[in-house]
Design a binder for these strands. Structure first.
Lengths: 245, 245
DNA sequence: AGCCTCCGTTCCGACATGCGGAACTCCAGC
DNA sequence: GCTGGAGTTCCGCATGTCGGAACGGAGGCT
């Protein structure tokens, strides 16, 4: 057997073809990216369009409204967002910086909400976006309070270098995480993008487990980042309390 | 043959089972709602979990992060939201009411963004939510500027009654839409929910077609609604210009 | 304890259904 | 026109899907 995917997984791989940025693809491109014969892709696309996972446009196909709807029904980000939003807004108005909320998904973080700073240029991440844990303040805040097996997974997956300052040595990451636990605050000093500084703090649920993190970010200097730490920490404590910790 | 669904559509019907509000379902419930035998559902769910469309929890299944991610990649709401957000924020701060942005999908509207009023209790709609066009200000604003065949579709689908004030007579709807065109403003006077008033205006793209609508809503009186109309109209004009109209 | 219910999981034979190469059509552009 | 690349249709083969039935395990009620 050529590959052990079920028919369903093959169909879903068509949707995967869209997460590399492009908003609109032609059937042939789609078939190529998913590694499916054109005629198979054609049939599957027909069903996906019927279900509105995809929409036909004058010149191609794009993700459809049904996915938009379902995406907003996903419970874990939705419940968290509903509770957190007022706190994020407070942080946003007091700091006047970009505020982020992210949850862990596997060994990545996924942005759940992002309140942009008034003058923010093009942001490097967006709600729904995914970034590795080891190179973001949000990720390190979560990782520092997670069971050690998770760190092993992260290391095993390879500490991918995003900028010259990305931590790539597992030992360095380990001591960094110890420092995070010391302060209850994680920093990202141009580790995911040059020029970008970030301060994050973990959020705990009623079982005392980290489920998410908040951060304030912007192009400010390192000292500005330190200066914002108390605000982030305070918000994270209030929010953790609200979550039942 | 029991039903002419392909295997793929049957699998997707499992996801449909979640949009009736419940965040978490058991495999058996899921199979029942989708009308599938348990063993078939079991196999399909396995693949959906593998793809992260679903997640296993201690006691059931729920929608997974992959859907959250993909939902945020859907181009039509995403592009619109990115452009509109600053305008919505202006409207939000000047009116201090709940501000909505919605697009048309078939004969419904789907909320793309919602900025809650500071003191808003539980809102009756949310981003990603869907409501019929004939009973909402947003829907009527869009419908009034759409080709007449769309109105026919809406009427053919039946003007479902949501409150005692919902317009149920096709003739009444037709004259209402003429009035909307007169003013470039649509009102919802407790037609989707008792006590709820709403003012909306349509948004046009570069081809001059309605693609969306903005609204301000809240529990205010009818006169308050009228009073907010100029603000909504102004925002809609600026925004349409920004969209290239 | 014992029983009972309701959950998820596994098995397997029969058969429908998805598969995909190849051939066809339709534009758009040298 | 012709050529390239788009989307669509066809159809026979066999593969993968289907689903009834039986199993196992985790509670809950008497």
């Amino acid at each position: 057997m050529r590959n052990s995917s079920s028919s369903l997984l093959r169909a879903l791989s068509l949707l995967d073809a869209f997460d590399k940025g492009d908003g609109e693809l032609t059937l042939t491109e789609l078939a190529d990216r998913a590694g499916l014969p054109k005629s198979t892709a054609h049939r599957l696309v027909g069903d996906l369009v019927r279900w509105r996972a995809l929409e036909r446009t004058p010149d191609g196909l794009r993700l459809g409204m049904r996915l938009f709807e379902l995406g907003h029904l996903v419970p874990s980000p939705r419940e968290l967002r509903d509770i957190a939003l007022p706190y994020l807004e407070d942080l946003h108005t007091t700091t006047r910086k970009t505020v982020n909320l992210a949850v862990r998904d596997g060994i990545d973080i996924v942005y759940v909400e992002k309140l942009l700073a008034p003058n923010e240029p093009v942001p490097h991440s967006r709600a729904g976006g995914r970034l590795p844990m080891h190179c973001t303040a949000l990720g390190k805040a979560i990782l520092a309070y997670s069971p050690p097996t998770l760190l092993d997974e992260v290391v095993a997956a390879g500490l991918r270098r995003m900028t010259p300052k990305t931590i790539q040595d597992p030992r360095a990451l380990r001591t960094e995480l110890a420092a995070v636990r010391e302060r209850r605050i994680a920093y990202d000093v141009e580790e995911s993008r040059i020029g970008l500084h970030c301060v994050a703090a973990p959020l705990f649920d009623r079982r005392g487990e980290v489920v998410a993190a908040v951060s304030v970010t912007g192009m400010q200097s390192r000292s500005t980042a330190r200066h914002l730490a108390p605000a982030v920490l305070t918000a994270s404590l209030s929010l953790s309390r609200q979550l039942g910790a």
